[in-house]
Amino acid sequence: MSVLVVAEHLGGVLQSGTARVVAAALQMGDGVDVLVAGHNVSEVAEQAASLAGVRAVVVVDQPNLASQLAESVCEVVLTLVDSYSHLLAAASTFGKNLLPRVAGIKRLPQLSDVIEVISADTFKRPIYAGGAIATVQNTAPLKIITVRTSAFGAVGQAAAAAYSGVSVDVNNSLTSLVSETQADAAGPELGSARVVVSGGRGMGSKENFALIESLAGRLNAAVGASRAAVDAGYAANDLQVGQTGKIVAPELYVAVGISGAIQHLAGMKESRVIVAINQDEDAPIFKIADYGLKMDLFEALPQLESALS
């Protein structure tokens, strides 16, 4: 059993999810290699090589991979993957974009959002927004899997694994990058933060949403938002927590002015401790919260911030 993990990186930095995907990979096989595809990625390769349990890092560093487009990276993966039994990536927008394309070309199925490894060919994954958990056996010669990173702890650091450079012909003329706008990365990354503070429709406006950012700053927390808050324009799309946004499982999740729709709960109900602050005592969020506070959030937030300072 050998596993190829596609590393995810941005601006020369390995994303924290990759260490968690490696942890999942080590439960499927002991030969875990990491693919780093991109341009000017030598630092990323070094970071990947120092993840504990990694056997080798394969580096494909060329200008035509600079934008990491799915069509281009797919060509790279296809040239490498035949000697592996498993192909893994994080269930992020990068991994979800790339792996099914590989699967379609290979005419093999893909398992999305795996949360538990039962054996090298049997996995658990949530369906129906986490309303049910399916145990699925995959007998394909190559098992293509995206991993829900919040369900696995990251591997630590170890002595650097070997890494080798490979060059691959990439012929993608289907797509090209026009522009990218990165959201301001104040505070920790939402997917791996120890504490997340999220605001919902109850925040009332984009200006009021600053109260969430302020409390998050106090707790060294990442900022999240419900779909309603994003749809209303209070928060950026990449902050959305839920079935179709980010799935998080921090030590502490503070939900402020969030009613608790099924699709939001799907994104945060695995958090260790959940706090809900809401004026509506019937809000479904209270049914899953460890600590509920029925209070006007515009009174509660300043009080909470001063109590923490």
Binding site: T122, I127, A132, A134, T135, N138, I274, I288, A289, G292
Partner: peptide, 18 residues
């Protein structure tokens, strides 16, 4: 290649305290 062996209800979270 895929066989669903089981479909289970997720572990239910207990409501905590107010």
């Amino acid at each position: 290649y895929l066989k669903v062996l089981k479909v289970q209800a997720p572990a239910q979270r207990q409501a905590g305290e107010m």
